[in-house]
């Protein structure tokens, strides 16, 4: 579903992501973790087609993101860490806007269900300025899910959510994965990654430090046996931040 080969992204003299390769199959949830400045957001933005890679290829559901960006982007959704909403559109109108962009013909029936799932129904006539940080985050997620993407990219998806919101969002992510979506989520909340993800990609200074299911990462490093992801992360990334 997601195939990344030799992804490198440079800004002038700085190499933010260096020769990164990984795959995410349908139903898998890949946790992208790393210290601050490791290149997580840059990687996600490259996957979303926001930043063009300096080299390497990204394939989304068989579409090369560079060669055929529109077809590839139609299959994916990107939810940034800071929700970017149009301050003059209501919650409901955001969904109408996204429906037109992604040509979601049955948006009229999908939107109410989605609003209900993310507890936004009673806020549907409100402007983003009237919503709390958590509600804004949920609206960004709702906009991402409306076209039922086959690839989901989340950058710190639980920031600003209350405990109920966290539970709901986790359920939403897992439900999409169960339905066959490939999910990549970046987070500093390692317990969340441990709970949700089928695999982990640990990066540091733009390089891949470890990749695969947690069990196989630990199996490759006997000294990490029995440790939780947090300890594994600290052991692998020590000296990287």
């Amino acid at each position: 579903m997601i195939h990344v080969e030799g992804l490198t992204k440079s800004y002038k003299d700085l190499v933010a992501v260096r020769d990164l390769s990984f795959d995410v199959a349908p139903g898998e949830v890949l946790g992208l973790v790393g210290p601050n400045g490791a290149g997580k957001t840059t990687t996600l933005r490259c996957l979303a087609g926001i930043l063009p890679p300096s080299s390497g290829t990204i394939t989304i559901t068989g579409h090369d993101l560079h060669q055929n960006p529109v077809a590839a982007k139609r299959q994916l959704a990107f939810v940034p860490d800071e929700p970017q909403l149009f301050e003059y559109l209501t919650v409901e109108e955001h969904l109408q806007f996204v429906a037109r962009i992604y040509q979601v013909t049955d948006a009229t029936s999908r939107a109410p269900k989605l609003l209900n799932e993310l507890e936004l129904t009673e806020h549907r006539q409100k402007l983003p300025g009237e919503l709390s940080r958590g509600m804004r985050q949920k609206l960004a997620i709702a906009c991402g899910l409306l076209h039922e993407p086959r690839v989901l990219l989340f950058d710190e998806p639980l920031t600003g959510l209350d405990p109920v919101g966290i539970r709901r969002t986790k359920d939403t992510i897992l439900r999409r994965a169960r339905e066959g979506a490939a999910v990549v989520l970046s987070s500093h909340l390692l317990h969340l990654v441990e709970e949700l993800c089928t695999g982990v990609l640990i990066i540091g200074r733009g390089r891949r430090l470890a990749y695969g299911p947690l069990a196989s990462i630990v199996a490759e490093r006997p000294e990490l046996k029995g440790l939780a992801l947090e300890d594994v992360f600290l052991a692998i990334t020590s000296g990287q931040s």
């Binding site: 139609r74 970017q84 992604y102």
Partner: peptide, 10 residues
């Protein structure tokens, strides 16, 4: 909103 605009399939 450049980030969002560039993520749209347009």
């Amino acid at each position: 909103y450049l980030t969002m605009l560039r993520a749209y399939p347009l």
